[in-house]
Structure formats: C-alpha cells, structure tokens
Amino acid sequence: MTVGILVDYEFCTGCHTCEIACAVSHDLPNDRAGVVVHHEGAWEMANGKWQDTYLPVFTDVCDQCAGASAAHDGAPMCVHHCQADVLRMGDAEELAKELVRKPKQLLYTLA
C-alpha cells in the first residue's frame, strides 16, 4: 500500500500550524520542514474576484513521520495539528478517488 497525504487547499487558512508541528517534531527550522505553506495572492482577478490561496507544499524532507509510527494517533504531526482539517493521510488509491469529487485538492505520496 502506498501512503499519501491529501490536501484540500480550498479551505487552507495559512495558519502555518502544519509547518510548526513538523519543524518541532523533527527539530528543524520552520522554513525548512517537511511541509511549507505557500501563499499566492492577494490580487484582484477579473469580475471582481480575488486570488488569495494558501497551499501546503510537502518537501523532500517529509517522511510522513516515518509512516506515522512516531506521530500522534497514527497520523503525521502536520495532519494531526491542522486546524482547518484540510490534510488527510491514508491509502493513496483511496485518497485519489477524492480528487474527482473536488477539484482544489492535491495528493502527495512518498516514492
């Protein structure tokens, strides 16, 4: 089974809790952790709509808390502490089915 982390970036608030949880649990600097939150915006698009998106990006440092064996409740620290509940860990094939249901999501897996 390939394990993945599904990110629903439509509702990410940019709180950076995932970064901090990862950095603290792995003794890393906040900006060099296994997950880093990217901010795109804020700028006005056509029709009075605005682009203001936060996107948790998983780096090569991410080991999914070594398969979540060392993490709290069997989830990586970033998933466990996500205040907006936009991160989910599980079987990559099962999580991939969610991508069809909702377009603003990304699926990360470790190779």
Rank of each mutant, 00 (worst) to 15 (best):
T2N: 14
V3T: 12
G4F: 05
L6Q: 08
V7E: 04
E10N: 07
F11M: 09
C12I: 02
C12T: 03
C12L: 01
C12R: 00
T13A: 12
G14A: 06
G14N: 08
C15S: 14
H16I: 00
T17V: 06
T17P: 02
C18G: 04
E19N: 01
I20E: 06
I20Y: 09
A21V: 08
A21L: 07
C22W: 10
C22R: 09
A23K: 02
H26P: 00
H26I: 00
D27G: 04
D27I: 08
L28G: 03
P29H: 11
D31V: 03
R32C: 10
A33R: 03
G34Q: 14
G34W: 15
V35G: 01
V36T: 10
V36H: 02
H38I: 01
H38A: 03
H39G: 09
H39N: 11
H39W: 11
E40V: 10
W43I: 07
N47C: 05
G48V: 06
Q51G: 01
Q51T: 07
D52C: 14
D52G: 07
T53I: 15
T53M: 15
Y54L: 06
Y54D: 11
L55C: 13
L55T: 15
V57P: 03
V57A: 03
F58W: 13
T59A: 04
D60G: 04
C62H: 04
C62F: 05
D63S: 12
Q64Y: 13
C65W: 10
C65M: 05
A66V: 12
S69C: 03
A70D: 05
A70H: 01
A71L: 01
A71G: 15
A71K: 00
H72F: 09
H72A: 01
A75V: 04
P76H: 11
M77P: 00
C78Y: 02
C78W: 05
V79Y: 09
H80T: 03
H81C: 05
C82E: 03
Q83F: 00
Q83Y: 00
A84D: 06
D85F: 08
L87F: 11
M89K: 00
E93V: 04
E93R: 11
L95C: 11
L95R: 04
L95D: 10
A96M: 10
A96V: 09
E98S: 09
E98Q: 14
P103N: 12
P103R: 13
P103H: 13
Q105V: 05
Q105H: 14
Q105T: 12
Y108Q: 02
L110S: 07
L110G: 06
A111S: 14
A111R: 13
